[in-house]
Amino acid sequence: MTGAASGMGRATAELFAEDGANVIVTDRTLEDAQRVADAISQRGGPARAWALDVADPQAITATVQEAASFFGAIDIVVNNAEISGLLPIDDPDYDDHFHRLMTVLLTSHQRVVRAALPYLRRSDAARIVNIASTEALGATRHDSAYAAAKAGVTGLTRAMAVDLGPAGITVSCICPGPILTGMTEAISAEDRDVFARRRTALRRYGRPEEVAQITLSLCLPSASYITGTTIPVDGGLMARNA
């Protein structure tokens, strides 16, 4: 699992461990990843941490191979690595900004999947879950690079589902809406409350655990006929017009 040191990634790693999975915890720094792996291990769950910068293709290949060797198999891939940043499209630095977000938020997904594919093909219940965003479904001002990357994740998910379906590998996408994570902590509680009441049907921000539950559900044996789909976990954000 990429981006597993905090927020939705950490909640997902902990939930999978509680369900009995061997968890590969990766994040940009080993210290952050290790903290999550240690917490899981203290509760009796098997977990191992690796430092992984998903912008580095060689690091992806090496980490996947090491993790597969350590655990003996890879059955599930969760692409959750995340960065953000608003920038107007006419900003002089926009091209570099666009490239960076595409690399981390979209290109890394296919690199992780391709590195893991030899192991997934050996599994009898292989699952891939890509984490996108409701920004893939509707954009925010000055967020075009992020929105484009996340929309690319939904398209990549559908295409991979078609390509990998004959091998029995399912590929699904989750689009979280406003979730209480480290990325949204910079927003004041008052502004979060105003936004949630104005935009979501449930009138609140979601919790990382609520996204984690859907991720786990897509990886259960009962979800073996779900593939190529995009699921918003957004408190009714995309459903509400007014």
Rank of each mutant, 00 (worst) to 15 (best):
Y205Q: 08
N79G: 06
I231C: 07
D191H: 14
N80G: 08
L30W: 10
R111T: 01
D234V: 02
P88V: 02
S172K: 06
G235C: 08
A196L: 08
A145E: 00
L202Y: 10
A223R: 08
R203M: 14
Y119L: 08
A115V: 06
T61K: 14
T2I: 08
I187F: 10
L105T: 04
A39K: 01
L164N: 00
D234M: 09
L237C: 08
A13N: 07
V54Q: 01
L156C: 04
H99R: 15
D56V: 07
L180G: 05
L164T: 05
A4K: 02
L220I: 13
G228D: 06
A167T: 11
A59E: 09
D143Q: 13
V171A: 00
E135G: 08
I60N: 03
D91C: 09
A51G: 07
L237H: 00
S224M: 12
V36I: 11
L30E: 11
S133L: 07
F70M: 10
T29Q: 12
A159L: 15
I128R: 03
G3N: 07
K150G: 01
S108G: 11
M160D: 06
P46F: 13
I83Y: 03
P92A: 09
L101R: 04
F16M: 06
Y146E: 01
I187P: 03
S217I: 09
I89L: 14
Q213F: 10
E190V: 15
D234C: 07
T181H: 04
T157W: 03
A148V: 10
E66R: 13
L101E: 03
P176Y: 00
A39F: 07
G235I: 04
D96F: 11
Y225N: 12
A116Y: 05
I214V: 15
D32A: 15
G168Q: 01
T26V: 08
V64R: 02
L101Y: 00
S222D: 15
D91T: 09
D124N: 14
S123L: 07
E185S: 14
R204T: 08
H142V: 10
L120Q: 00
V23C: 04
L218G: 02
V64K: 01
T170A: 11
I169K: 02
E14I: 04
T103W: 05
E185Q: 15
D163S: 13
L216W: 02
